[in-house]
């Protein structure tokens, strides 16, 4: 039975719940989880309840990496570290925006912990505002499409590269749509000594506007169109990529999501979709996906 227990308040079809479940499936009981503020944190722990079957702590939105480093230091000082795995499970906003400094510090200090970014590409907990993980031209409540806007005008930040630049021994991308692969990577990350990182693509039905039954399907399309490249980096070098056989055009991914709907109705949308296709093409070349 999963260590993330049912009864939590995640939306039906929630990507964050899946990610949390897979992380615990990978790591087992001897794990301490640190969660920053965000959907997963809020919907799993409405006092006096908790969905977590392992020790879990939430402090603030922007400090999870620092909290985790303190947990690790304490276990060492108290002689209780042994094989206990310390893992942060944080949203893209907590990771790539407000918590970036604390993450940088913790990775530089080299604590033995694993940071999992559950990337649903916006601030979902506060109602789908853009983050630096929001992809180009997605419509969110703070980067809406409008008469003179195609939505979010900025490119997604390359967080795995930032972590790799800190000298992390293991950085990987994964997706909730590929459970065995994700579980394998999380396990590997936790087993490697030092600060490691897994960036998990997590399609959010509520925020991206598709039916909850399609969470996995949408996640697969992101990978199959090369918009979400799956790779592993060891000591800064890409050591493994998931190859694509019959790459799909990005339209197939975009058209199933309400957040990209305007690209198919607005004048000039076709041009804009080409720019998104160019991102996929760059991924293919950069990571050698084909």
């Amino acid at each position: 039975m999963s260590l993330l227990k049912p009864g939590h308040r995640g939306c039906a079809g929630c990507c964050d719940a899946l990610a949390g479940k897979f992380v615990l499936d990978a790591l087992g009981e001897d794990t301490i989880v640190v969660s920053p503020t965000g959907c997963l944190e809020v919907f799993t722990t409405p006092y006096p309840e908790s969905a977590w079957g392992v020790p879990w702590v939430h402090s603030l939105f922007e400090n999870a990496a620092a909290v985790a480093s303190g947990v690790e230091a304490a276990l060492k000082a108290l002689g209780r570290k042994n094989n206990t795995k310390i893992v942060v499970i944080g949203g893209d906003g907590a990771t790539m925006d407000i918590g970036l400094q604390a993450i940088s510090g913790a990775f530089e200090r080299g604590h033995d912990f694993t940071y999992i970014c559950v990337d649903n590409e916006a601030y979902m907990n506060t109602g789908i505002q853009r983050s630096s993980a929001t992809p180009l031209y997605a419509s969110t409540t703070t980067s809406p499409s409008g008469k003179v806007s195609f939505g979010n005008p900025l490119n997604k930040k390359n967080m795995p590269a930032i972590i790799a630049a800190h000298g992390s021994p293991y950085v990987a991308t994964a997706s909730v749509a590929y459970a065995p692969d994700m579980i394998k990577k999380v396990k590997k990350a936790a087993e490697i000594k030092g600060p490691t990182y897994v960036h998990v693509h997590a399609p959010c039905c509520t925020g991206w506007k598709f039916e909850g039954s399609k969470t996995i399907e949408v996640g697969r399309l992101a990978v199959e169109t090369a918009l979400w490249p799956m790779y592993e980096m060891e000591n800064g070098a890409v050591t493994n990529v998931r190859k694509l056989k019959n790459r799909k055009p990005v339209e197939e991914y975009l058209k199933v999501q309400g957040r990209f709907k305007h690209l198919f109705t607005m004048e000039g949308g076709a041009e804009v979709i080409k720019k998104i296709q160019a991102i996929a093409d760059w991924n293919v070349k950069h990571f050698g996906l084909e």
């Binding site: 402090s59 922007e62 400090n63 620092a66 303190g70 230091a73 108290l78 400094q101 604390a102």
Partner: peptide, 16 residues
């Protein structure tokens, strides 16, 4: 790397 992380790390350590 900051006072914010100093106190945050202690929050984790104290909880542990």
């Amino acid at each position: 790397e900051s006072e914010f992380s100093a106190i945050s790390a202690l929050i984790g350590a104290s909880a542990a």
